[in-house]
């Protein structure tokens, strides 16, 4: 036997922070740093309430980001989530609207609310299933498939709302879910649900076999198959998972605004992708984390809200996103290369 035999103790003692934790810490410190810088530049920025708002205002995109992050880690895109948000929101309204309204847009199927919600989620699942069918069975690049299903989902929403929105003839309970506040605070139910989702997602990612399978598949799909992992089944689950989240987000949003609007969620798929990339998720697969995505969302929130605070035109958001992603990718590549030199 060559060399000295390592004892178990040494093998653990020598444990080094993984690249993933390293990048996540990097992203987190950038988020904190940006928050501090923004506090210096923008009056009244440095407030707990503002910090809280940065998260609560972005609950929808952060929730979508969870599904998108899992898929990216497995090596797949999901650009359909924005469309699914619109579809499920519109479906929940249409199903819940009572029959026999004054015109086509004010009469729906008159289902009880719980059934309307379930049916809307089923509609979202159908889009996720379509994604899985095309990506897993037909092996068509996920970027093209999910661009297509994004249009299909939004297209169905537009047909149901005739290109505008449905907001009449709704049962009273329709507006409850999206506007319920939790524990006497101003925090709304969707934000609480986002928190729960994040905790569950981090648990799945870090502690469960399901999370580990996602990394294995993303890291090396061929080796994963030869190691007995059912890749097709897992990626199918991930697409269904992502579309259910998007479906629930859509239902909550339409409940909050008491309307089903076919253009709701426009560009949300793009923002979800952006925060994942900012958070260090690699589109090559096998690398990234939900926590990183969360801090990525914070970075984006700080940058955009600081820009608004500095009275920049809202049109700046596109440029800021582009520059942020560009810098994030370069910085992460550089940091990893330096670290592993």
């Amino acid at each position: 036997m060559r060399g000295s035999k390592k004892t178990g103790g040494a093998l653990i003692q020598n444990r080094r922070m993984s690249d993933e934790v390293y990048i996540t810490l990097l992203v987190a410190s950038v988020a904190v740093g940006l928050f501090l810088i923004a506090s210096l530049l923008v009056p009244n920025f440095f407030q707990w309430l503002n910090l809280l708002n940065l998260v609560t205002n972005n609950w929808a995109v952060i929730s979508l980001g969870v599904g998108v992050t899992f898929l990216l880690v497995s090596g797949n895109f999901d650009l359909s989530v924005g469309g699914v948000v619109a579809l499920s929101g519109v479906l929940s309204v249409w199903f819940a609207q009572s029959t026999g309204g004054a015109n086509a847009l004010s009469s729906g199927l008159g289902l009880p609310y719980w059934l309307a919600v379930l049916s809307a989620i089923t509609g979202a699942l159908a889009i996720g299933g379509l994604n899985a069918l095309f990506v897993v069975r037909f092996r068509i690049p996920s970027i093209i498939v999910t661009l297509g299903t994004m249009m299909v989902a939004r297209g169905i929403a537009q047909v149901i709302t005739q290109g505008s929105q449905r907001n009449t003839n709704l049962p009273v309970e329709f507006g409850v879910l999206g506007n319920l506040t939790a524990f006497g605070t101003s925090v709304k139910l969707p934000v609480v649900l986002m928190g729960v989702l994040l905790v569950v997602a981090i648990f799945i990612e870090r502690k469960m076999v399901f999370g580990r399978l996602t990394y294995w598949i993303g890291a090396n799909p061929v080796a994963a198959t030869l190691s007995g992992i059912d890749k097709a089944r897992h990626v199918t689950f991930l697409y269904l998972f992502s579309s259910v989240i998007a479906g629930i987000v859509g239902i909550l949003l339409s409940s909050e605004f008491k309307s089903g609007y076919s253009n709701r969620g426009t560009l949300m798929e793009f923002d979800a992708l952006v925060i994942a990339l900012l958070g260090g998720v690699a589109i090559a697969g096998g690398f990234g984390s939900v926590v990183g995505m969360f801090f990525g969302a914070l970075i984006l929130a700080v940058v955009t809200s600081a820009a608004t605070g500095m009275t920049l035109s809202p049109d700046w958001q596109y440029i800021l996103k582009a520059v942020a992603v560009f810098l994030a990718i370069l910085a992460q590549t550089w940091a990893l290369a330096r670290r592993n030199r």
Binding site: G211, Y215, A219, V222, I229, G286
Partner: peptide, 29 residues
């Protein structure tokens, strides 16, 4: 490298992949 290993994962993360039943409890790793 292309069929056997998950090269960007650690030794620890590579070893259990072919026997998940032994590695987990009701899906928890």
């Amino acid at each position: 490298r292309t069929q056997g290993l998950f090269t960007n994962l650690s030794i620890r993360e590579n070893i259990p992949v072919m026997n998940l039943r032994r590695m987990s409890d009701c899906g928890v790793f």
